[in-house]
Design a protein around this nucleic acid. Structure first.
Length: 194
DNA sequence: TACGTGATCACG
DNA sequence: GTGATCACGTAA
């Protein structure tokens, strides 16, 4: 594809990238199957706030976040779910954007087959990774490659974008109050509040 | 609202 | 080593 987002797109603050990712098209080519979806929900994470894995500095898990923007950060949550993030900002900054929900486009049947549930198979970070075939081994792979990438798509009207508090940050203190979750207003694929 | 689930991290 | 913690999803 020729409208893949360039590396430079990712070399910015997580908060900027998170907003701009809404309405873009996430595509995976895994196990010889193409699946794709429109990004309808994201969350930004920055190194200097408690919600971020990189807050305590570079560790085995968070090391990927410190890479140069434009690679995938995939990690296991609650021993069960693989959460897919996009690393942003320059090398050495531990910023990233969690992709929380998609509106399915191509490969519906493939996604249904991979999923355990029957509907809303890409609403929520754990389910989305399952449907798209994203695994832990895709941690650190480039988004300019041929496995996982993000393409330009029809632009979203600014008035259709809404910001809220991020989901599921129990012990982030005041940083849990940041309005760093971006959703497309009234899109049925946005994941529900907890 | 409760809890399964297992890697990871901050301790000792 | 070991125990607490967790960017979730589902059933109830």
């Amino acid at each position: 594809m020729n409208n893949v987002l360039p590396r430079e797109f990712y070399l910015r603050e997580a908060i900027e990238v998170a907003g701009d990712l809404l309405g873009k098209k996430l595509v995976t080519n895994i196990g010889n199957k193409i699946t794709s979806g429109l990004i309808v929900e994201t969350e930004a994470y920055a190194e200097w706030e408690r919600g971020c894995h990189a807050f305590r500095g570079k560790t085995k898990r968070s090391a990927t976040l410190f890479e140069e923007g434009g690679v995938a950060y995939v990690y296991l949550c609650y021993g069960v779910y693989k959460l897919f993030n996009v690393v942003t900002n320059v090398k050495g900054k531990g910023d990233g954007v969690l992709i929380r929900a998609l509106q399915p486009l191509d490969g519906w049947e493939v996604m249904m087959k991979r999923s355990h549930s029957k509907n809303k198979i890409t609403s929520g970070p754990g389910k989305l990774s399952l449907a798209m075939g994203i695994e832990l081994k895709h941690n650190e792979i480039s988004l300019q490659g041929n496995k996982i990438w993000i393409e330009e798509a029809a632009p979203i009207d600014a008035k259709d974008i809404q910001t809220t508090k991020r989901i599921g940050l129990g012990s982030a203190g005041d940083d849990a109050e940041l309005l760093w979750r971006f959703i497309i207003k009234e899109n049925e694929w946005v994941s529900g509040a907890r």
